[in-house]
């Protein structure tokens, strides 16, 4: 299993300079990818713009959205942006997409909340067509475009991933939760008649140096989940042992790439994680 690290685009105190510096150091570290999350109505950076910037200061890392809320974006614009990041980075983009979890993100973007699942499926079908199409450039670096992953926990999400994408990206939780989702993703894949196996990515939040700041961020970022916020916050990995245990559990469950997302913008988080991972 490969280990990636998140780019702190939604944690308090994330500055433009800080992000670039973080990306540069991640590229030099023991990580294989750099992941970003997405939220419209929040003090956070746009995922594809952030990855484009990161592309400029990195040479090696896979750049991944985990996930981008696809239906709040116009399909052709999203396709063009993704193809651009892919081209700028020399084919390093992995585009994870999902319906997200919040109505206000749709309202702020002027997108329709009802029917968002069907819209996502349609977008997935169209993204590939646009990437294959000669007229809307740039040409992605591989045929059929960047690797596409779908997230979400419903039966429809697994089916969507199996029909239209290259794999599944899990939303976080203990290894048991990942394993169960991975099995569902594989079952849907077989049912859809896809040759080969789905690519499986996981994610977890960590904070090794931030003190209470990590916990505070989790509570704020996930406040909209109401009663669930406590449980999500309880999943924050705050010790090297907890991170190692998570890595072991995910590897056993067949995860190919686990992206560890920082819950603070403290640059020391990256070094501390590098020590654990190395």
């Amino acid at each position: 299993m490969r280990i990636g690290i998140g780019l702190p685009t939604s944690t308090p105190g994330a500055t433009g300079h800080g992000l670039l510096d973080w990306a540069r150091r991640a590229d030099e570290g023991p990580f294989s990818s750099l992941g970003v999350v997405d939220r419209m109505v929040y003090d956070s950076y746009d995922p594809l713009v952030a990855l484009a910037a990161a592309a400029g200061v990195t040479t090696r890392l896979t750049l991944c959205t985990m996930i981008a809320i696809s239906p709040i974006r116009r399909t052709a614009v999203l396709a063009k942006q993704a193809a651009s990041v892919d081209a700028i980075s020399g084919g390093r983009l992995v585009l994870g997409v999902s319906i997200g979890a919040r109505r206000d993100d749709y309202e702020a973007a002027g997108a329709q909340y009802a029917g968002r699942g069907a819209q996502l499926s349609r977008q997935l079908a169209e993204l590939r067509d646009i990437w294959d199409d000669e007229q809307v450039g740039p040409r992605p670096s591989s045929s059929g475009g960047p690797v596409l992953l779908v997230g979400g926990g419903s039966g429809a999400s697994f089916q969507r991933a199996a029909r239209h994408a290259d794999g599944y990206v899990h939303g976080g939780g203990p290894p048991r939760a990942f394993a169960s989702a991975a099995d569902k993703a594989r079952a849907a894949w077989v049912e859809a008649g896809r040759p080969g196996e789905p690519t499986l990515w996981g994610q977890s939040y960590f904070s090794l140096t931030g003190g209470g700041a990590g916990d505070a961020y989790m509570r704020d970022y996930y406040a909209f989940t109401g009663g669930f916020v406590e449980r999500i916050a309880a999943g924050l990995l705050t010790t090297p042992e907890a991170i190692r245990e998570q890595i072991r559990g995910y590897a056993d469950a067949g995860c190919e790439e686990l992206v560890l997302l920082p819950a603070t913008s403290d640059p020391a988080e990256l070094d501390a994680l590098a020590d654990v991972v190395a």
Binding site: A156, F158, R160, K184, A187, A188, E191, A192
Partner: peptide, 17 residues
């Protein structure tokens, strides 16, 4: 399932579903 190409009609994909 798979009768139509849209999302409705997904399974639950649990063990032995």
């Amino acid at each position: 399932g798979l009768t139509v190409g849209t999302d409705a009609g997904a399974g639950d994909y649990r063990r032995l579903y």
